[in-house]
């Protein structure tokens, strides 16, 4: 376990190695916040509610969901694995006594902890600067459930991206898979628009898939909505994690012999 903690620490250190990057990340997040405030301010102009949301609950939803969306940096994992398999540098993970998936998850955690810190600061700044009356759940059970859901969601996304990266062993080029995944995730997680704005039938279908529970459900739980879906969310997401782990295991066992470590 200590080896994975050290990997987490190493990646936190790499995130803060450059002062310029650090400052620009904060500024970039603040810029997004300003644009979002202008957009939702225009939509709510002269109206108290839009599809059951007040401007405060909508802004709270937006802050939380963008916080969660930006927390998940796992899409970099699939591209890094793919690139490393293609140029042969994936070998560096194969020659050290470590679980490769564990390495990438620990790497992801290092990045997440850093982002957690940045986005927490900028979200708090946002709430204060724009004097948003932040809508937040007070029930500790729902709060704890939502946090577990977020952890499971981040783990699922890391698994998914690790799996897609491994497909390079078989297909060599996985950009199409990644494009489909990125578009699907952006839509289904509700990070583009809240899913309550979509027809009920479509939302029902989405509930069978894990993405609904990654960003959308925890965001809604945090603002005190759809509490009844917590149990189902935990169950569905846990099942997907177990299934995907089995798929990853089978994929690695079958395809790792195809790795040819070209370029070294």
């Amino acid at each position: 376990m200590r080896k994975y903690l050290e990997i987490v620490k190493i990646y936190i250190k790499t995130q803060i190695a450059w002062r310029g990057d650090f400052i620009i990340q904060i500024l970039f997040t603040l810029t997004k916040i300003v644009f979002a405030s202008l957009l939702w301010g225009t939509i709510f102009a002269g109206r108290d509610k839009v599809t059951g949301f007040t401007i405060n609950s909508m802004m709270s939803y937006y802050i939380i969901s963008s916080f969660l969306t930006q927390l998940d940096m796992s899409s970099k994992v699939s591209r890094e694995i793919s690139q490393r398999i293609r140029n042969g540098t994936f070998s560096k993970y194969m020659i050290i006594p470590i679980n490769i998936q564990g390495y990438f998850i620990a790497m992801e955690m290092g990045v997440v902890f850093f982002n957690l810190f940045i986005y927490f600061i900028t979200s708090v700044l946002w709430i204060f600067i724009f004097r948003i009356r932040f809508v937040f759940v007070s029930d500790p059970v729902v709060l704890a459930g939502a946090v577990i859901l977020i952890i499971l969601g981040l783990f699922f996304m890391a698994q998914l991206n690790y799996y897609l990266g491994l497909l390079t062993l078989k297909y060599e080029e996985i950009e199409t898979f990644l494009m489909i995944k990125d578009n699907l995730v952006a839509f289904v997680t509700g990070s583009i628009i809240p899913l309550t704005l979509l027809p009920e039938g479509i939302v029902l279908v989405m509930k069978a898939f894990p993405f609904y529970y990654v960003t959308y459900l925890p965001s809604m739980l945090f603002i005190g909505r759809i509490k009844g879906e917590l149990g189902m969310g935990l169950l569905v997401l846990s099942c997907w994690c177990v299934v995907l782990q089995a798929v990853i295991h089978a994929t690695w066992q079958n395809y790792r012999v195809k790795y040819d470590g070209v370029g070294i």
């Binding site: 200590r2 080896k3 903690l5 050290e6 990997i7 190493i10 250190k13 050290i96 006594p97 470590i98």
Partner: peptide, 12 residues
């Protein structure tokens, strides 16, 4: 030193 620390943990 940072990398060596990582290797220390990886190799236990």
């Amino acid at each position: 030193e940072d990398t060596l620390r990582l290797f220390k943990e990886i190799y236990g």
